[in-house]
Structure formats: structure tokens, C-alpha cells
Amino acid sequence: MSVLQWREEFSVGIDEVDHEHRELIGLIRGLQENLGDGTDTEQVIDVLGEIYAQIAAHFALEEKMMRQTHYAALADHKEDHETLLDDLRDMMDEVEDDGVLDEAQLTDDLDRWFSDHFSTHDAKLHRSGQH
């Protein structure tokens, strides 16, 4: 089971974005580390809800920055954000509906989901143009 860690290469060079990425990774990691036998499903749903709230705010801020810098691919990037939110909502629904937790699956999903956020033109955007 891989546990998500903050790595220097995640840094996009903008304090507030890095700060939020760090917080998100912390939340995800906390969840992953606590997953195990007898994890309370309710608690997992809570933490997923918390992650959802943070990432929604994070995207909102990123989109504002993109608008301010007249970032050309804003529409595409925005769509990626909506897809990522959708995926997270699916994970939440799954946990909710099944009532049973597939920890390995969830851990992998979260890992993949977070790296997806980076592999979108996100990092590229932040490195390329603001300062």
C-alpha cells in the first residue's frame, strides 16, 4: 500500500497553491494511514467530504488565478477540475452505497486521483507563467 507523501517536485512555486496541496496530501495521507481493519465507514465518508471541500476551494482559487493571467487553456483546465470533482464524488458514493470499505481500492483511487490533478496541465501552468 503506497502512502502519498509531499515531494519537492510537487512544488509549483506559488506559496498558496503549495500550501493547499500540502494540506490535501496531509488529509489523504491521514485517511490512508487510518484505513485498516475495522475502519469506521462513517468516518471515511467524513474525511472524503472534507477532502472534497478543500479541493473544491482549491480549484476555485486556481481558476481565479487562471482568469487573472488570461490563461489560454482555462476552459479545458476547468473541465478537468469538474471531472476530478466528479471522480471524487463517485468514490464518496461508492463508500456510501456499499457500506463496506475496500481499503486497497480506495487508497489506490486516491493516489491516482491526486496524481491526475498534477498530470493535468496544472503544474505546467503554474511553472510557466505567473511571475
Binding site: 468516518q43 465518508i45 467530504g49 471541500a53 476551494a57 480549484f59 464518496m92
Partner: peptide, 16 residues
């Protein structure tokens, strides 16, 4: 507000 969400349960669901 992007953090106005019904999904958070225990952790007081306070938005921005």
C-alpha cells in the same frame, strides 16, 4: 462558496 457542502458530517460543516 465552494466549501458550502452537505457532505461533511461531524467536522462542523462550516463554509468560508
Amino acid at each position: 462558496c465552494p466549501t458550502s457542502l452537505p457532505f461533511r458530517r461531524t467536522s462542523a460543516a462550516i463554509p468560508g
